[in-house]
C-alpha cells in the first residue's frame, strides 16, 4: 500500500545529487513503495534542498532490514567517536539510543 507516512527533519550537511554536491536542508524519511528497488516496500530517505528545486535530491531506497542495520551503524559510529568530535549532540541521549538499537 501507499503508507502516506512521512517524517521530515531539518538537517544541515551536504549530499551529492544529479548536478553534483549541494547543501542539504531537509531529510524526508518514509516506508513506502520504492521507485527503483526490487521490493514491495522500502525505507526511503530523500535528502533535499527545496530552495534549489525538486531535482536537487539525493535518494536512497533500502530493504527494511538493511535500513535498520544502517541505523545501528550510524548510532554506533556516533557513539564510539572520540570525545569532542560531536558538537551539538546530546551525549546522554546518544548513549540511550546506543542501548536501544543494539537490542
Amino acid at each position: 500500500m501507499c503508507t502516506y507516512q512521512t517524517e521530515t527533519l531539518e538537517v544541515t550537511g551536504s549530499a551529492k545529487g544529479p548536478e553534483g554536491w549541494f547543501r542539504v536542508s531537509e531529510a524526508v524519511v518514509y516506508l513506502d513503495h520504492p521507485q527503483h528497488a526490487l521490493a514491495e516496500h522500502t525505507l526511503n530517505v530523500d535528502f533535499r534542498n527545496p530552495a534549489l528545486g525538486p531535482a536537487t535530491r539525493s535518494a536512497v531506497e533500502l530493504e527494511p532490514g538493511a535500513a535498520l542495520r544502517l541505523a545501528r551503524a550510524i548510532v554506533d559510529a556516533l557513539r564510539t567517536a572520540p570525545p569532542g568530535l560531536l558538537p551539538g549532540v546530546d551525549q546522554e541521549a546518544l548513549a540511550r539510543l546506543g542501548v536501544e538499537v543494539s537490542r
Binding site: 512521512t6 531537509e26 530523500d46 533535499r48 527545496p50 525538486p54 531535482a55 535530491r57 535518494a59
Partner: peptide, 20 residues
C-alpha cells in the same frame, strides 16, 4: 503543482514532502 517540469520521481518526493 509540487514540482513543474521535474522528473516523476523528484515530483513525487516533492509532493510527499509537502504533505501529499
Amino acid at each position: 503543482r509540487d514540482a513543474p517540469g521535474a522528473s516523476p520521481d523528484d515530483a513525487a518526493a516533492a509532493s510527499r514532502a509537502t504533505g501529499g
